[in-house]
Design a protein around this nucleic acid. Structure first.
Lengths: 227, 227
DNA sequence: TCCTGTGAATGTGTTCACAGCA
DNA sequence: TGCTGTGAACACATTCACAGGA
């Protein structure tokens, strides 16, 4: 294991290698920091403190410092973090400094919404291919891509080096679609279909499920008016 | 504070009162159990063990037992849990045994996808009102509702006793929409707009954010092929 | 015997408090 | 002085191990 004392030896540009094994919770917060930093950078703020970030993210400053310290100590004591440097560091840790090609399967209303939103942000990760089975949709332009037939998924995923895919298809075909994607080389899936995908262990799946979200939120709804 | 020792006194039908203060993580797992139980119930399974649930949810049996024990000990030693009784208990804890009316603001592609999906499931919580600003959409039928103008939000939310709402509008108007909803009486919001809403403390907000999900997933994408 | 319910042990995450550097 | 970085304390969550009822 090369995780000995040579902490500063690695190339200063690519932190990536050194920052594996962040906890899932820490990883989930990184995009939150990134959004705040993007806004601050756009507003011309050159230096941010953990207290500034706490204010705009709703997290505590201690937690933010803990998280950011894990990236290697980019702050300056008494001052804060250089906005752009920190932003680049986080993007690098998440792997967003290289191109991250995303495949989208399903060009229904949900897929269309995702594709349109994706087109509006000029950032990584970016949807670079869209697939559907509906002949009426195939060939149509959507979010900067042309909708491809499902038969081309494996081919496209390999050719475009897609490792990350979004599943926006009906539940009954989601498992099959997921298997095709993984078979073709996908590592990470964002699943909008309301079922649990069973896939090989190495594949990371995040689920977004409307029904479950609403059910969980219902718990927090106050009791109906007593009378 | 009526949280004294009278734990078994409450009506046996409504567990609800006794099961406040579940942790956020436990609450998030309840819908997972619910889905598994729905499937098992539909398949005619009358009794499930924590091991069965573990198999179909991917969680550990110990964790499931801990969670379910918090609902008051509905299992039978040596046997398991009665599928329907457990399902009813969880639905009751989440508040789904009474009607949970949901408002949806935004009838774009995303809102349409959500409304259609909602219509297909005959379960609580249920979208009972849809709003949009676009005159072309107002009056159209969508997912069993007629799209209403934004001007009627406050009125509808109060009349239909809506406490839970979905925000599926562009980011630039999301804060304003959220404030209107909360003002009208909403407790819990599911926000699909890519920004952090600032609202009163009592309001529970869950965010679903495509960009952040993709950024977090990118971390788990394996390195590109070495050569 | 089987499977729940639960105390104890462990592991993980957050908060506190402050040393240390610009 | 101001803010980061971090050990230590604390809080929370999960896993282990097993007692105990059906």
């Amino acid at each position: 294991m090369s995780e000995s004392a040579d902490q500063q030896v690695a190339s200063s540009r690519t932190v990536n290698e050194r920052v594996r094994h962040l906890s899932a919770l820490t990883v989930k917060r990184m995009p939150v920091y990134l959004r705040a930093l993007n806004e601050m950078s756009a507003a011309g703020v050159e230096v941010v403190s953990s207290a500034d970030l706490a204010r705009s993210t709703g997290l505590t400053s201690e937690q933010i410092r803990k998280d950011l310290a894990m990236l290697g100590g980019f702050g300056t004591r008494g001052v804060g973090y250089r906005t752009d440097a920190l932003r680049t560091t986080i993007r690098d840790v998440l792997g967003l400094e290289r191109e991250v090609a995303v495949g989208l399967v399903g060009a229904g209303h949900l897929g269309t919404a995702l594709a349109r939103y994706n087109e509006s942000r000029r950032q990584q990760p970016r949807i670079v291919a869209i697939f559907d089975v509906d002949p009426a949709k195939i060939g149509q332009r959507l979010g900067g891509c042309v909708v491809q037939p499902m038969a081309l998924v494996a081919d496209c995923v390999q050719r475009l080096r897609i490792r990350l895919a979004i599943i926006a298809v009906p539940a009954r075909v989601a498992q099959e679609v997921a298997e095709i994607l993984v078979q073709a080389g996908c590592d990470a899936l964002l699943n909008f279909a309301p079922l649990r995908l069973s896939l090989a262990d190495g594949v990371r799946v995040h689920n977004v499920d409307l029904a479950m979200e609403l059910e969980a939120l219902a718990y927090y709804v106050r009791e109906p008016d007593p009378v």
